[in-house]
Design a protein around this nucleic acid. Sequence first.
DNA 1: GCGCATATTTCGCTATACGAACTATTAGAC
DNA 2: GTCTAATAGTTCGTATAGCGAAATATGCGC
Lengths: 158, 158
Amino acid sequence: MDYNDLYQFMLDNIQKIVMPEELIKIELSVSRFELAALMLAERHDNITMSALAQGMSVPMSTATGVVDRLVRKKLLKRDRSEEDRRIVTVALTEEGSELLEKVKKHLRLFFDRVKSLLTEEEFETGINLIRKIALGLRQDQTVSGDRPVLSRRAIKIE
Amino acid sequence: MDYNDLYQFMLDNIQKIVMPEELIKIELSVSRFELAALMLAERHDNITMSALAQGMSVPMSTATGVVDRLVRKKLLKRDRSEEDRRIVTVALTEEGSELLEKVKKHLRLFFDRVKSLLTEEEFETGINLIRKIALGLRQDQTVSGDRPVLSRRAIKIE
DNA sequence: GCGCATATTTCGCTATACGAACTATTAGAC
DNA sequence: GTCTAATAGTTCGTATAGCGAAATATGCGC
């Protein structure tokens, strides 16, 4: 497997490269940011808008929009903190939790599908490789300076 | 590694899940569809709009939009077939090819980065596992009926 | 030539993402 | 206390995206 093979491989799998988001949407009718927000809300009880925005690496105005939609869909609820009335916190609704359960179920299915394609040993090896790579990449990234919360808008051509 | 670990892992990597598209954009100021179109154009000389749309699994109206933007950015050029004047073909410009070279370069760098994190042997094993999984998943998919060019719009809630 | 099929574009609509300006609340200076 | 600056979020305007339906243009069969 050399560079050209890799490139070829990417080409052959364009659909999947182009699709990751679609998978989510088709199954669950939430966008990737919405899913991320739900997951963050699950992880951190009563997460603040700022934390949410940071967690997703988007500006607050975007986070507001994402949460707006999720509230409209009744997957999240907003609340204002009593101690500091500037702060808005966000939490999963019953429906939101249910949706996340569905996500997990899908994930489990996928996980199982992959598992079924490999031997026990291959699977373990695979997981370890991924872990190793993920860890390595993360470190590389951290080393290369206190990345300035990367600006997400690409520079337009001309 | 069980389901919960996996979910946890996803959570820890939300940024990357949310970001795949951003990586492309930041580096190259093209969207994922645009990149896919360029790659398809590279692959098939003078590809038709229909083929392009099919290759990306999007309706023609979307493909038109994508190509419009790429033409505006001077990365693609449109031409009308002489034999059948209904057909519009699309080809890379010089600039388009250059951009793809950049993509490949990025890919190579990433490839090398991953390589550097693993031993030669680990790397080979990894590639083989991926191949095996990709193949397996593809087969699963094909088995499950002549999938009807999946509709890409999610059903709205309520 | 007529009518139907094919290839593509145009149009209108709905989402999304985001910067800048604005609002509300808190904390600090005096 | 009250004035000011900082903080947390939202609103507003704008640009881009994806797409279905209708429109346009061309080719084909007879």
